[in-house]
Simulated scan of single mutants.
Amino acid sequence: MNVLHKTDPAMSNRRFDSLVGLAAAFLICGLPAVLAADETQPASADKAAWGSVTGRVVFEGDMADPLLDRFRGELPVYEGRPTQRAAAGLEPDNPDAVRQVGVEINRTLMIDEATRGIKNAFVYLYKAPDAIHPRYSEKELEDVTIVSRHTRFVPRACIVQLGQTVQFKNLSPNYSTNIHVNTIRNPGFNSFFESFKQRAWETRRAERIPIKIQSDMRPIAKAWMLILDHPYAAISAKDGTFTIPDLPVGKHRLRVWHETINYVEKFVDVTVEAGKTTNMPNCKLTLEKLRKKHQR
C-alpha cells in the first residue's frame, strides 16, 4: 500500500527561508557564515589591538671619570703598512713606515651632556610575537646600506629584518678596505673593497644579539648590526630616547644592549595596553657596570 506523506507548508517555508539566509550570508561575506569570526578576519589595524613602548637609555655615574676616556674623545689615524699595530698603540716594526694623518672621533660611547642619554643602544623584543601589525607586512622591505668612509662605518648601528638585503659600499675615494662581519648564526662575510665598490649580503637567520662589523685593515672602523625575524626594535637617539610602535597587546620581554657592556638590561618585561603607550623606566648604563666589564 502506498502511503502519501503530507508536507506542512509552514515548515517548508521555514526551510526555504533558512537556505536563502545562508546563501545570502555566503554571497555577502564571501565565506561560510558558520565559520567563527576570528577565522574569517585578518589581523586588525584597530587601535584596540595594538600599543607602543617608549623609554630612554641613560648613563649613570661621574662623567669626568678617566675610564670614559677609553670610549670617547679622539683616536689617531695612521697610514702605512703596520697600521694595525700602530692603531693598537704598539710600537711598529719600522717607525718610518707609519705616519699619523689625522684623528677620528671615538663613537663607542656617545653620551649627551645635557640629558645623559646614550646614543646607539639597541632595544628589541627578545622573541617574535604571535601577531605582527598589518602595516609591517604591507610595507616592502628595502635594502639596508652600510658605507665605509675611510676610518668609520655609517651608520654605527643598524637593524636588519630577515628578507632585507645588506648593501656594503666603500665610498673612500683613495683607500681600499675590507669589510668583515663577525656573525654568530649566519654565514660569515669578509671581503676586500676597492674604492667605490659595492657588494650585497643576504641574511638567513635571526641573531640573538647585535654582531660586529669591522675593517681589519683599519681597526678603528667598527659598526654593529642586529638581525631579527620581526620588526619590533629601535636604536636610541642622541638623547637616549626610543619608541617601538604597534606592538600587539599583552606582555612582552625586551632586551637592551650596548657595545660597551653588552647587556644594559638582559630582560625587561613590559605590558602593552590597547591604544596606549607604555613608558619604561630609564635603562641605566652605569659607571659601575662599565668598570666591571673593562677593569678585570
Rank of each mutant, 00 (worst) to 15 (best):
A10I: 13
A10D: 11
R14Q: 07
F16L: 14
D17N: 09
D17C: 14
L19Y: 04
L19K: 05
A23M: 06
A24I: 00
L35E: 12
T40A: 13
Q41S: 13
S44Q: 10
A45V: 04
A49I: 10
G55R: 14
V57Q: 03
M63V: 06
M63H: 00
A64W: 00
L67A: 13
L68G: 06
E74Y: 08
L75G: 01
Y78N: 04
Q84A: 15
R85Q: 02
R85P: 00
A88H: 14
G89L: 13
G89S: 03
L90V: 10
E91T: 10
D96K: 03
D96F: 06
V98R: 09
Q100L: 01
G102C: 00
I105M: 10
I111G: 00
D112V: 07
D112G: 03
E113C: 05
A114E: 07
F122Q: 01
Y124L: 02
K127L: 10
K127R: 03
I132M: 03
I132S: 05
H133A: 09
R135G: 03
Y136F: 15
E138G: 11
D143K: 12
V144D: 04
V147D: 00
V147W: 05
T151E: 09
T151N: 15
R152E: 11
F153K: 07
R156K: 06
A157S: 11
C158T: 15
V160R: 06
Q161V: 08
Q161T: 10
L162A: 05
Q164F: 06
V166N: 07
V166T: 14
V166A: 11
Y175K: 10
S176V: 05
T177L: 02
V181R: 04
N182Y: 00
I184M: 09
G188V: 01
F189R: 02
K197I: 14
K197S: 15
T203N: 01
R204I: 04
R205A: 07
R208M: 07
R208Y: 02
D216E: 04
I220G: 04
L226I: 01
D229W: 14
Y232E: 08
K238V: 15
G240C: 07
F242D: 02
L247P: 09
V249E: 04
V249L: 11
R253K: 13
W257C: 04
T260W: 05
Y263A: 08
V264P: 01
K266A: 14
V270H: 02
A274V: 06
A274T: 12
G275V: 11
G275Q: 04
T278M: 13
M280N: 11
L285F: 03
L287T: 10
E288D: 08
E288R: 14
